[in-house]
Design a protein around this nucleic acid. Sequence first.
DNA 1: TTGTAAGCGTTATCAG
DNA 2: CTGATAACGCTTACAA
Lengths: 337, 337
Amino acid sequence: MSQKVFVSAQEVADRAGVSRSAVSRTFTPGASVSPETRRKVLEAADALGYHVNHLARGLMRNESGIVCLIVSDMATPHRSGLIKALTEQLQSAGKIAMLVNTDLSDGSVDLALRQAIRYRADASIILSGMPDKSITQLCLKSGQRLVLINRDDEQDGPLRINLDDEEAASRVVTAFLRAGCRKFALANSEAGTPSLMAREKGFVAAARTHGLDVIVERYGWTSYESGRVLAQRLLTQSQRPDAVFCATDLLACGFMDAARNQFSLSVPNQLCVAGFDDIEQASWASYQLTTFAQPLATIAQEAVLWLDSKEGANSQGRAHAIRLHADLVWRGSVRGG
Amino acid sequence: MSQKVFVSAQEVADRAGVSRSAVSRTFTPGASVSPETRRKVLEAADALGYHVNHLARGLMRNESGIVCLIVSDMATPHRSGLIKALTEQLQSAGKIAMLVNTDLSDGSVDLALRQAIRYRADASIILSGMPDKSITQLCLKSGQRLVLINRDDEQDGPLRINLDDEEAASRVVTAFLRAGCRKFALANSEAGTPSLMAREKGFVAAARTHGLDVIVERYGWTSYESGRVLAQRLLTQSQRPDAVFCATDLLACGFMDAARNQFSLSVPNQLCVAGFDDIEQASWASYQLTTFAQPLATIAQEAVLWLDSKEGANSQGRAHAIRLHADLVWRGSVRGG
DNA sequence: TTGTAAGCGTTATCAG
DNA sequence: CTGATAACGCTTACAA
């Protein structure tokens, strides 16, 4: 097997002619070491290629520095953007990200959380799916902090970070009306996550306010392909919509492509389209999608900030919720920006 | 601070009325425990919510189960796809992925590798950038395995997984010729990574074989935006090319959009375009990009397989290289598929 | 098969 | 400021 021969603090101590403790203190920010000792230790450490063993340190300090990112479909533009933002923030806060992939199967998230517990992660950040109540209880009982991003759940204890999806969706109606549209449709996936449903709800409700009905169609999971299928369904209606809000940019891209290629519709002249997330592709010339920007950096900041705060530690059982605003990004897919 | 109160093996042992060792053995595959003891232990463990502390286990076994993924631009379609594939493979091999973000600054990869050493990762997989020789030596000396993906380097010790970029690029020439194209151009980024340069080299060389010159243009880093700029430069040439090989799909998408919108060129009628990577967007209706598929699953498999193999452990100093084939994916951006 | 005891590399405590 | 010593939670000889 592997012959691991990492340098230990003892070896450094021996070489520097000091005690293990001196070595330990040298690598502990804020500990008191004389400049002379420090110098000797650092010199020896460098010569030997010593690096503090964080496994052992975590064992002692009861704080591993590990934060577990639990996520499905991580190759998706929006998800990967969020992972990137979180990883960066965690790193600059001196923590490290552990990545666990989940699928849609039952208990997949639970399994991931168990993994987080095994590695004594200081916290878990859940980007997709929902864990079973019993397992989140275990996490909280074990003193592991929990962050739920964009999954509006009423569980106690964890920090929840959400967008104001409903309010954002209502602004789409305003935009569509200003563009002179009258026949609204909503394209959603069947995933039925709280975020998606809130967008749907907000859009439909706001349309009603203006006395307008909305044709709602749901299909598959949140993907480009689903967007194409949704276009098939919505654009063959007897009363063809002239404005479609897609619950996700990925859906919107598929929708637009199908609208143009299969129905020869011009966007935005014959059809206005809006999306949500502001993935990179939304800004590509082929789409120029009007959409809502997920404040990825802010989400990540808030999450990491909370992890470091006393609040996070003390909130055993008390839930804390952050609701962020999604900025509307005007682009060419809706008339009259 | 955090009051972590994870359940320990001792507590489980107490409740089950057995020794710590019995608990340990119950959770060690292949250890000898009587069914009766096992039952009692599992029952107690379940009731208490016990999970083996992998930090402590790693300390003892000298094997953490952690594999460090070192990567920059992780939100990019190709990168995130690779991360996903690797994470999945690692998980099903019983390992866990640690994610470290690097930037382009000097020593960024070295810093990441140090992080891997601190957490006593069993291995590091480098997806971008190149570490300093001294630090890789340290890794290898410490018994940490190293995998370099798509970075053709002559360093000793690590496993290198590469595509046959050069050969693949030469096939683009064949495709372009078959489409009746004569004026070739190559759009590349300035990143100058071995993969990118190999694609350039292979394309230019193959074209020469047929007595054709290639206009080569390089700009910025590998992004959609760079693709647009490259289009500006290449399509304003006095001798406008009728076939462009973009070193990356992302470049190709930007290139195609600019070609259509700013130069009103029809792809593939007036201009054939090929890319590399086969990112998801390449298959979108707006692009229908002819490209080469990165065998992500195979890459991930080979990497993880090697990590588990004796070979990986014994190859202290002996480098092992795997060269994979990239399949050509024919789509509409090149005539006559 | 089981328990006892030693040890993995740290850090925290406490004298000096 | 420094060094000995006792944890941390686990695995693994070794002996029973």
